[in-house]
């Protein structure tokens, strides 16, 4: 299958990759959401996953930190295979940060407390070290002055940037973004995307489910198009946007880009 060409060419060994998925399938009851997914993501690679809703793209990245369990095939994240063994899940989740569509900040904690919770509880960091790092990261997402506020007092764009800072506080090796801008008012999309662009520039391994095609074109090393639980096509953004091979990809792109 020519669609797999970029990944096979770059990482024949596979084991050193950040994420390896081989023959992954998943069902919800009788409904097959993922079908024989093969995917290798190199360290430092930035992958954008797009596709119509219900195509399985969110499920795919949620399998990477085991928010969803796959039923067939194998997933190896940062050298650790995800099995039912809780220790493997804990190890993977410590190294994988995730940003959700609905932000999912903890509303009963301040911004700073949201950020230091996991480093202190999971990594055993001291409060001082955790707070210093959190402040630095809040500055990096350009909201250092909001540290003492509660999430409910912030705008959607600010909340999503806090969510990114919170995930980064664990010093993850891989970042997953699940439609991070879909729940935002249009004028706030840019401030979140800017932060993500910066992050990409720093060499973070990123898997990003998004409809922001401009963003994909700008930062992605590879764009993956999914439909019906399968990877239909994947290519470098230049090729993907200018010369899509599959009819379904072309139909999707004309719809998405036509909107803009």
């Amino acid at each position: 299958m020519t669609a797999n060409e970029p990944s096979t060419r770059r990482a024949a060994s596979g084991e050193g990759d950040a994420v390896v998925m081989r023959g992954v399938s998943k069902w919800y009851g009788d409904f097959r959401v993922l079908t024989d997914i093969d995917l290798n993501v190199r360290r430092g690679e930035r992958v954008v996953i797009c596709g119509p809703s219900g195509s399985g793209k969110s499920t795919l990245i949620r399998c990477i930190n085991r928010l969803e369990e796959h039923q067939q095939g194998e997933i190896i994240v940062d050298g650790v295979e995800l099995t039912r063994d809780l220790r493997s899940i804990d190890r993977v989740r410590r190294e994988v940060g995730m940003v959700f569509q609905q932000f999912n900040l903890f509303p009963h904690l301040t911004v700073l407390e949201n950020c230091v919770l996991a480093p202190m509880r999971v990594r055993g960091a001291s409060r001082r070290a955790a707070e210093e790092q959190a402040q630095a990261l809040l500055a990096r997402v350009r909201i250092p002055e909001q540290a003492g506020k509660y999430p409910g007092q912030l705008s959607g764009g600010q909340q999503q940037r806090v969510a990114i800072a919170r995930a980064l506080c664990m010093n993850p090796r891989i970042m997953l973004f699940d439609e991070p801008t879909s729940a935002l008012d249009p004028e706030m999309v840019k401030e979140v995307l800017d932060v993500m662009v910066e992050l990409a520039g720093d060499g973070m391994t990123m898997l990003c489910v998004t409809h922001e095609m401009g963003f994909a074109r700008r930062i992605a090393d590879r764009v993956i198009f999914m439909d019906g639980g399968q990877i239909i096509e994947q290519a470098e953004p230049e090729t993907f946007f200018t010369a899509p091979k599959h009819a379904r990809t072309r139909a999707f792109l004309s719809q998405v880009l036509g909107d803009q």
Binding site: N65, L67, Q102
Partner: peptide, 27 residues
């Protein structure tokens, strides 16, 4: 509680009891 609260806590690597005591039960 919204499912997202459980998922966010799990994604951060919090164990079951940590998640319950710091995120879920207080709310």
């Amino acid at each position: 509680l919204p499912k997202g609260q459980y998922e966010a806590a799990a994604a951060l690597g919090l164990g079951y009891w940590q998640m319950m005591f710091t995120v879920i039960l207080p709310q």
